[in-house]
């Protein structure tokens, strides 16, 4: 690992000031992606700003039919929260399936979405539920937040404060984990309420998480197995690597969508 400065901050304001003062800084939350990346010298920030001690970023609450989660809340806390289990179990189950227990004790929701790894789980939940991401400056809808691989709408001096998920009980996340790494090779987050169907896909596209709009309109038009099976994901633009080519991955997405649909109907 290359040498860097380390700064622990106690408030959001302090974190933002540090970020503005040194644009080569990186925010350190759980560090479950950042530290392994730095170990491999794939990242070499000049300074780490440790935000894990900012108390106001660590919370889970219910607010006007939304579950609001502070950005430094770790995956274990989300997975084991009774409030989320009762109101939005799709999100508890997603959190329960991230990494392994030790990673879940450290990794945070804010870190996961700010990194926007194309195989991460949380971005699918944000898009699949139509979440709103609150930062120190503004509120960003999930539809505008995830830009491309490892790229978000966050500006250089902007940090995620909380994520607000609408409580949609007809929602589910289905993923096909890579048998070795356990990252999603294909993950589908599906939700359905009276006016909208959302189908978000992670792990598959060369451009990161995306909404599968063709599937959404087909299911909104007619919530049935036949309209589900009419739509097939095109392999174009789908990742192709040692673990599976684009045809294989596109088919996995189709299958995860079927499982999600069946799961919601159960």
């Amino acid at each position: 690992m290359y040498q860097f400065n380390y700064k622990k901050v106690e408030t959001i304001e302090e974190a933002v000031n540090e970020l503005s003062a040194n644009p080569e800084s990186k925010i350190l939350a759980g560090g479950m992606t950042l530290i392994p990346t730095m170990k491999q010298r794939l990242a070499s920030p000049e300074q780490l700003i440790d935000i894990r001690n900012i108390k106001e970023l660590n919370f889970i609450k219910e607010e006007s039919n939304n579950i609001v989660i502070g950005s430094t809340t770790n995956h274990y806390t989300v997975a084991s929260s009774d409030l989320i289990k009762n109101k939005l179990s799709s999100l508890s189950r997603l959190a329960e399936g991230i990494g392994d227990p030790h990673v879940r004790n450290m990794g945070t929701i804010g870190g996961a979405i700010s990194n926007n790894d194309p195989t991460a789980d949380y971005p699918a939940a944000c898009l699949g539920l139509g979440a709103t991401i609150k930062t120190n400056k503004r509120e960003i809808s999930a539809d505008d937040f995830f830009v491309s691989l490892f790229e978000t709408a966050l500006e250089e001096d902007e940090i995620v404060v909380s994520i607000s998920f609408p409580i949609i009980s007809d929602s589910i996340y289905m993923k096909f984990p890579n048998p070795a790494s356990r990252y999603a090779m294909a993950g589908v987050f599906m939700s359905k309420n009276t006016s909208e169907v959302r189908v978000a896909v992670t792990g598959a596209s060369e451009n990161g998480v995306f909404r599968w709009t063709e599937m959404e309109s087909s299911l909104l038009n007619d919530w049935s197995k036949s309209s589900l099976e009419e739509v097939k994901l095109s392999p174009e633009g789908i990742m192709s690597d040692i673990h599976g080519n684009s045809e294989y991955r596109a088919n996995l997405v189709n299958i995860m969508a079927i499982r999600a649909f069946e799961g919601i109907n159960e």
């Binding site: 380390y6 560090g31 894990r52 990673v103 004790n105």
Partner: peptide
Amino acid sequence: KAVKSCSMLAVQAN
């Protein structure tokens, strides 16, 4: 809490 000490900095354990 169980954590992987290879993925944490010593300074974080302050």
